[in-house]
């Protein structure tokens, strides 16, 4: 990967973005009628589908049990994937998603219940966790489950002494540091944080800032999408007045 120039002298990245630019985000809420809540999100070439289902169960008497299932479609990656779920990476991702939403959902409001979050990656081009979190947030909002705030996730990296936001697959696999942050954008609280590869401690602050800023940008887009969706639904049902 030595020959790959991740950031040109003019300040452009491989896919033509600037350092602080997110990929194009498109999303829809309520894509399925059977599930209690559902959403579809595209972040550049990463495409994720999320669905929510609520049910009763008896194990936890004081709060809701958040259950997650993360899977990647066999056709989502460059090479055909053998197992859509159950491999180590998927299990890890499932755990992280559950941890994230356990912290963000007001779990004490639904004792003796269970919320299932199903996430399916249809096409993968880096930032799978981020897209999954964003999709699941939209689906939870669609299902009407109370959250502390939107949960927005964004990744960042550090190339040629400058932090870059929302990295794609090529940038992810270049061996440069990758930091993934999920935040509650209004309070700037960090729900999930993970970093791999080497990054000097002095630069940590800059990269985290970039990622948090990315989360806030994502929040703007998600919020607009939710408002649009609600007004659309209201029009259809004639709730406007």
């Amino acid at each position: 990967m030595a020959g790959l120039e991740l950031l040109s002298d003019q300040g452009f990245r491989i896919d033509g973005r600037r350092v602080h630019e997110l990929r194009k985000i498109q999303c829809r809420l309520g894509v399925f009628s059977q599930a209690d809540g559902s959403a579809y999100i595209e972040q550049g070439n990463t495409k994720v589908l999320a669905a929510i289902r609520g049910s009763k169960q008896k194990t936890l008497h004081d709060k809701v049990l958040v259950n997650c299932q993360y899977s990647m479609a066999t056709f989502s990656t460059g090479e055909r994937k053998r197992r859509p779920r159950g491999d180590r990476k998927s299990q890890e991702m499932t755990m992280h998603l559950r941890q994230t939403f356990d912290a963000a959902i007001l779990t004490n409001l639904y004792p003796r219940s269970q919320i299932d979050i199903f996430v399916e990656v249809l096409q993968s081009d880096g930032g799978n966790y981020c897209a999954s979190v964003n999709a699941a947030t939209l689906a939870l909002i669609d299902a009407g489950i109370p959250l502390k705030d939107y949960v927005c996730a964004c990744s960042a990296s550090f190339v040629n002494d400058s932090p870059i936001v929302d990295i794609n697959y090529l940038e992810e696999s270049s061996g440069k540091p990758e930091i993934i942050v999920a935040t509650l954008p209004k309070s700037e609280q960090i729900v999930f944080l993970e970093m791999n590869s080497r990054l000097h401690e002095d630069n940590l602050s800059k990269v985290v800032d970039t990622a948090v800023k990315g989360c806030k940008d994502v929040y703007q887009i998600l919020d607009t999408a939710v408002r649009d969706h609600v007004s659309q639904v209201a029009t259809v049902h004639g709730w406007e007045n």
């Binding site: 999930f192 944080l193 993970e194 970093m195 791999n196 590869s197 080497r198 401690e201």
Partner: peptide, 8 residues
């Protein structure tokens, strides 16, 4: 002082 991994 290089961070190699970080996990919360």
């Amino acid at each position: 002082r290089e961070i190699c991994s970080l996990q919360v």
